[in-house]
Design a binder for these strands. Structure first.
Lengths: 203, 203
DNA sequence: CCATTTGTTTATCGAACGACAAACAAACTG
DNA sequence: CAGTTTGTTTGTCGTTCGATAAACAAATGG
């Protein structure tokens, strides 16, 4: 039951991964179709045939990114038994991901396109929406802690606590981008977690 | 003692300010010389004559940015009587600046060029170096607190504390960029300051 | 084998990019 | 005034941008 016409000479999964690496290193606007074609080992026309336009390709790349690099922090939130352990493990998993020696030292979701030309507004908003999802996921995990009984409703509000740890997690990307090492990020995480007890006990 | 040749028809200070507004909104790579010429009301050749190449112009723009938008947070660090008050006031001054209704909702130093094409590597490193200066300034202020006697040497280390608050201040830009309001940033700051007492008392 | 279907290569499109040279304009000095 | 100096405008340089059309290649079904 092979396909009808001429079969592909490249593996779309492999090519997408190669496109991811380029977008990750250079950001959305900093990556040209020539850059992509070279890294993927195919012509730009084949990119259009298989993945669509540049923003469409980027959307598929981000889906792959979320499913791979995004998974460890998400799993930490999901699998840790308490809200506190979940937040702590999420921060550490993020620090691990953004200091890997085989990838750029930052989160692509945060730094691939925070600003840029007017014509790429949609791409920026696409990423912004995913970052707001990130905040919502953290907030949901805190709410689960309240339900589970391991977290008293914080005086500052769940929203405040969630936004605070979202801010830290996103700030870590700037730090790593600028050369902070994994141990240095660990000290930041330790400081950020020092606020936990104060924030989650009645004031 | 007027200048010798034909006098300028535009005010370089005004033009630089207009260039700043464009770079701020669209980032370094997202801004073309056509965009700049239009906003500055002069031809691209006049830009080259008065300000040099695109990266040179951007350097002058960032100097202006540092002297204007960068000043309130720096002044907060300088003028507040204690290290704690200084950090708190710096965070608030930053939040004020990045939620002004007459400017983009983020710090240009953080988001104008975190990633991009290989040929603009120097511009990115220029900004990264200034962000490392930001960290150093915060650390120096904490050290002054120790000297002044209002801050005991923190168990986690001055470096850790300084990097932590730098991470928060930089993370705030992502939050504001994605739509967080001034009151929402205030809740983040409150959470971040909640760590202070724990971090600065003997553990 | 032939017609069809699909993928790849090659060439190219119009527009925009950063950068500048040459021509023109307006002030000065003597 | 003439001559010099400096600023601005106009035009254009070679390159690259994202995006396709047309030509060529390799598999299928009948």
């Amino acid at each position: 039951m092979a396909a009808r016409g001429r079969p592909r000479t490249f593996d779309p999964d492999v090519a997408l991964r190669q496109a991811l690496d380029v977008f990750w290193e250079r950001g959305y606007e900093g990556t040209s179709l020539n850059d992509l074609a070279e890294a993927m080992g195919i012509a730009t026309a084949s990119i259009y045939a298989c993945f669509g336009s540049k923003p469409e390709l980027f959307g598929k790349v981000m889906a792959l990114y979320g499913a791979t690099s995004g998974e460890p922090p998400r799993r930490a939130l999901r699998e840790q038994p308490t809200a506190r352990a979940a937040i702590h493990a999420m921060l550490r998993a993020t620090a691990d991901e953004i200091t890997r020696s085989d990838a750029p030292h930052y989160c692509m979701l945060v730094l691939a396109a925070p600003t840029g030309a007017i014509e790429n507004h949609e791409v920026r908003e696409f990423l912004a929406e995913r970052r707001r999802d990130q905040f919502a996921t953290i907030k949901d995990r805190l709410a689960r802690g309240v339900t589970d009984g391991d977290l008293a409703t914080p005086p500052a509000g769940l929203d405040a606590l969630a936004r605070y740890y979202t801010t830290v997690v996103q700030g870590l990307s700037i730090q790593a981008r600028d050369g902070a090492t994994r141990p240095e990020l660990e000290t930041v995480i330790t400081c950020a977690m020092a606020a936990w007890d104060t924030l989650t006990s009645a004031g």
